[in-house]
């Protein structure tokens, strides 16, 4: 235990830098994923057959092994944080896209009918009825994607993008348990903080009338 504390004291500058790299790589990837997958999910609810192909494609992205995906990116994007962010962005799409699509599709058709009857435009129905009713589902997908991305962001280290994966893989490689433990604990800490923040966001986004009286 004291060895562990000593390790952290000796390396604290490097550890903080790696935590910072890990955070911004995950943050940019998830945000980009959110900005792409939510509008895309909405569009898919408006088209008849497209959803099957688009979601199928995003599913397949998920099965590309990370080392192979990163290998494919080297000729295009070189090495470092950029290819890692792009890979994580691609991996983050699925939970948000799937939940946006399902969340909006599952809004009670009777409510949509009622809104239409009141003379709302398609955009108003989306903005005032569908999105508020689906937002907690969409944000559920966002939370899943955030946690997954922070966990998967260790892959940045295998392409020279830094992040906490450096401590994890090197710790395994040279059998330095303190290093491995530091990497794993810091990743878990980031995930816990991110979960706390995204839970707050999910609560704020949920319309008052739909908010459960239970704390989430």
């Amino acid at each position: 235990m004291s060895e562990f504390i000593q390790f952290i004291q000796e390396r604290h500058e490097q550890i903080l830098l790696l935590i910072w790299e890990h955070s911004y790589i995950s943050f940019i990837a998830v945000m980009a994923g959110f900005l792409v997958s939510v509008p895309l999910g909405i569009i898919l609810t408006r088209t008849e057959k497209m959803n099957r192909y688009v979601i199928g494609f995003v599913n397949i992205l998920q099965t590309i092994p990370s080392l192979a995906l990163l290998g494919l990116m080297i000729p295009l994007l070189g090495i470092g944080a950029v290819p890692a962010i792009v890979a994580l962005f691609l991996y983050s799409l699925l939970p948000m896209l799937r939940n946006t699509f399902t969340g909006i599709m599952e809004v009670d058709p009777a409510l949509k009918e009622a809104a239409k009857g009141m003379g709302m435009t398609s955009f108003q129905i989306l903005w005032k009825v569908e999105l508020p009713l689906a937002i907690s589902i969409i944000m559920g997908g966002f939370r899943t994607a955030t946690i997954y991305t922070i966990s998967w962001a260790t892959l940045a280290a295998v392409i020279g993008g830094g992040g906490l994966g450096y401590l994890v893989f090197t710790g395994l490689g040279v059998a330095n348990d303190n290093m491995l433990l530091t990497g794993a604990l810091a990743t878990a800490m980031l995930a816990t903080i991110a979960d706390f923040i995204t839970r707050k966001i999910q609560n704020v986004c949920t319309p008052k009338g739909l908010r459960s009286n239970r704390a989430n």
Binding site: I147, Y148, I150, S151, T154, V168, L172, L180, G183, A184, T187, A188, L190, A191, T192, D195, R214, A215, N216
Partner: peptide
Amino acid sequence: MTRNPKIAVTIQTIINTVQTIPTIS
């Protein structure tokens, strides 16, 4: 978890933490 909101946060944190354990570990 929907019935025990207090414990729900703890369970969620455990599940999240498990995700972050490096694969080999």
